[in-house]
Design a protein around this nucleic acid. Structure first.
Lengths: 335, 335
DNA sequence: TGGATCAAGTAAAACGTTTTAGCTTTGCTT
DNA sequence: AAGCAAAGCTAAAACGTTTTACTTGATCCA
């Protein structure tokens, strides 16, 4: 393979074919209608195919002001759920000629702001954002900057925006109902003390379906602390008033399983377990844990198609794109 | 926030200060030595600071031919190990002004080639590659194209190249020795039938440390198949001739744990378990599984610093950068 | 007949950088 | 006094696109 394999430019093509640069550009961009004859179009296309012309993205970006770059700000890009989403998004996006840049907020408002100010004026076309807690005001002001912004996993009620989320309310309600039909009458719930829609919707779905509620709420920042362990022990072991417990997130479930393991709780005979988000751990746990699984592939696809549609529609007057996808109950041995 | 907040360009700065574009550019790029007076440098810098000038990367790329983009081709970017590496790499790279584009080979040669041909001539500065199986020839030819290329996790003996890997041989040898000192005399090994250096080194480390070897090798493509389950049952249950088994990868360990779970093997009393790569699952398993953990943060940092150093050294005559980092044994209850 | 419309094509500007090749002026050496 | 190097600065080309505004013929229609 030659090292001095010069890249061929539009200019080269125009020269070789004895036509103008404009003509070639029109053909490439499909704007040749009424500008270039059928015959010439064919000729140019054939030549492009032959030499394997690839446009210079830097020049395109410079001229158009579009970078074909999307930022995906997740809570933690190395978390299995977000990692899977990211992987799918990346390949969908690439098929459409877009690059994705990733970053993680760690659910920390300041980190999120730091990332966003860093990206500002760096030529990003669109943002896909999983907002951290206490981010409502910032979220609103991001939108006012006019960049395409799609929210993921969490949404706000106080203002309109594009989003792709799980239908948390329905998912958990259906799952709880299923458990009731299976014979569980007293159902406990462990949630997160949080202003995120995700958490509120999951809690409400549970509350609306259950006769009497048994709820424990953990502070997000304390999730790995000793206090939490003690509160979980109280709720799940000493004071237990239910036969099955539903965890509102996988990190809560993991904390809960740790406690149950320590106290040698028999799952599911003495206590059933159900949690949000499927992952390897739950499948292989002894016994395997039942979960409400999120449709990862679909979520990723919706995120990308939504974003790209918004980017290509110059007039975004179609209102807001808002998708709420159903979760899927995977019943295993823990229930 | 104004929407018509025009980005300020070098030209604007030059105009405002009554100097030439060249001067401003020199100051920005630190090439002002003997070209611009101290006094003027200060003035320009102050103005830049004041207006918050941010260079247009598209224009820079177009002019310099550098895109500040690195491709990271992993085996599976959503796998916990690679996801963690990717997350760290992304932030290190960003601090140095580089973007990273991710893709996954699924350990499939054709996918890897497809990705690489796609990226060809797309203005990528460097490649960080986890080569799939049977990729030796392609790996060699990538290097001949003159782009900076760093191999990760796997390396080749037949030709010289830059790489960052785990010191698999030493890591497993030390771990096995530790197990021997703990009293385990008969040690089994489950490896992958593979031409990847990673696997060969792990097997050799085991073989060189052990008196008598008990080895089972699984074909990569069959890892989730029924055949594998049966062979594992034979090796781990019916014909077992050892008191502890070492798995050469986490996917093997997971397959093995499945089998042991099915047959209700008591870990560690009737069989000890040790595996490569730490992950949540092993920590939370009942009982927690001992692992040889890879220094994720360090690996990611070395990858990025190596790549960037190679990119900034115009004359890459310093020979090949080759890093082999030690693993760390985390002994838990399974041993 | 003349005016308008339309198809087919092109020249050239613009996007924002970096960098080469110069141009003055000053100071130093011989 | 002539020559030369160095310091300090700039004009302009170049990177590869996209797109506006324009030219030239041909056709159409009243």
């Amino acid at each position: 393979m030659r090292k001095d394999h010069k890249r061929v430019s539009i200019k080269d093509i125009a020269q070789a074919l004895g036509v103008s640069i404009t003509t070639v550009s029109f053909v490439i961009n499909g704007k040749a209608r009424n500008k270039v004859s059928e015959e010439l179009i064919k000729k140019v296309e054939a030549y492009i195919e032959k030499v394997g012309y690839i446009p210079n993205v830097a020049a395109q970006s410079l001229r158009t002001g579009k970078s074909n770059t999307i930022v995906f700000m997740a809570e933690d890009i190395s978390d299995p759920f977000f990692a899977k989403i990211a992987k799918r998004m990346e390949s969908f996006a690439f098929e459409h000629g877009y690059k994705i840049v990733f970053c993680s907020t760690e659910n920390n408002k300041d980190r999120a702001i730091a990332h966003l100010t860093f990206f500002k004026d760096k030529g990003i076309d669109a943002y896909i954002i999983t907002p951290p807690e206490h981010f409502e005001e910032e979220a609103k002001s991001i939108m006012e900057q006019g960049k395409v912004t799609v929210f993921f996993d969490r949404r706000y009620n106080s203002f309109d925006h594009h989003y792709v989320v799980l239908d948390n309310y329905r998912s958990i309600r259906d799952a709880v109902r299923f458990m009731q039909q299976k014979g569980y009458s007293r159902i406990g719930f462990v949630g997160l003390e949080s202003d995120l829609s995700t958490m509120k919707e999951r809690e409400n779905g549970y509350l609306d379906q259950v006769e009497t509620a048994f709820v424990l709420k953990i502070d997000f920042k304390e999730i790995t602390s000793q206090v939490t362990i003690e509160r979980l022990e109280q709720f799940l072991i000493y004071d237990r008033q239910f036969d099955i417990v539903v965890f509102a997130s996988n990190s809560l479930a993991i904390a809960g399983l740790r406690v149950m393991q320590k106290h040698k709780v028999n799952i599911p005979d003495s206590l059933g377990v159900l949690t949000f988000d499927d992952r390897e751990l739950f499948e292989l746990y002894n016994p395997p844990i039942s979960v409400i699984s999120q449709p990862v592939g679909l979520l990723a696809e919706e995120l990308i198609t939504t974003t790209i549609k918004l980017l290509s529609d110059a007039d975004q007057q179609h209102g807001f794109i808002q998708k709420s996808l159903p979760g899927k109950l995977i019943a295993r041995y823990s229930t």
